[in-house]
C-alpha cells in the first residue's frame, strides 16, 4: 500500500526522488479518503512551488482538497493526462496517477519526509 522507495509528507503527498528531480503524487490512503477523483488542478511547467505551500487542488464530487508541495523547486513536468482521466489518481496513485515533477532546489527537504513505515504508522493514527 505504501511503496518503500517513496517518501511521504504529512499532507499525504508522496515523492519519488530521481537525481535532482522529484515526482509528486498523493498516497493510496489519500485517494481512498477522497473518493472518486473528478478533477485535478495542477500548476504549469515553469512555475515555482514552495515546500509546505499549495501547488494545486484535487476534487471529488463533493469535496475539494489542496495539494501541498513536499519539496520546493521548479515544475518541469505536469501530468496532463489527468485532465481527461482524473480517476487515474484512484486507480494507480503511485504510477500513472502522478501529478508533477519538480527540480528540487533544496535536497535537504527530502530528508524531512517520512519513509513508508513511518507514514503507515502516521496514517493508522489518523484513521
Amino acid at each position: 500500500m505504501y511503496p518503500s522507495d517513496l517518501k511521504y509528507a504529512r499532507e499525504h503527498e508522496w515523492v519519488r526522488v530521481d537525481g535532482d528531480t522529484a515526482t509528486i503524487g498523493i498516497s493510496d490512503f489519500a485517494q481512498d479518503q477522497l473518493g472518486e477523483v473528478v478533477y485535478v488542478d495542477l500548476p504549469s511547467e515553469g512555475d515555482e512551488v514552495t515546500a509546505g505551500d499549495t501547488f494545486g487542488e484535487i476534487e471529488s464530487v463533493k469535496s475539494v482538497s489542496e495539494l501541498y508541495a513536499p519539496v520546493s523547486g521548479e515544475v518541469v513536468k505536469v501530468n496532463e493526462a489527468l485532465e481527461d482521466t482524473p480517476e487515474t489518481v484512484n486507480e494507480d496513485p503511485y504510477g500513472d496517477g502522478w501529478m508533477i515533477v519538480v527540480r528540487i532546489s533544496d535536497p535537504s527537504q527530502v530528508d524531512d519526509l517520512m519513509d513508508a513505515g513511518a507514514y503507515e504508522a502516521f496514517v493508522s493514527e489518523e484513521a
Partner: peptide, 11 residues
C-alpha cells in the same frame, strides 16, 4: 430514477 452517477456529471 435511482442513484445517479454524479462523478460522470462532473468529468
Amino acid at each position: 430514477v435511482r442513484r445517479l452517477d454524479e462523478a460522470r456529471a462532473v468529468k
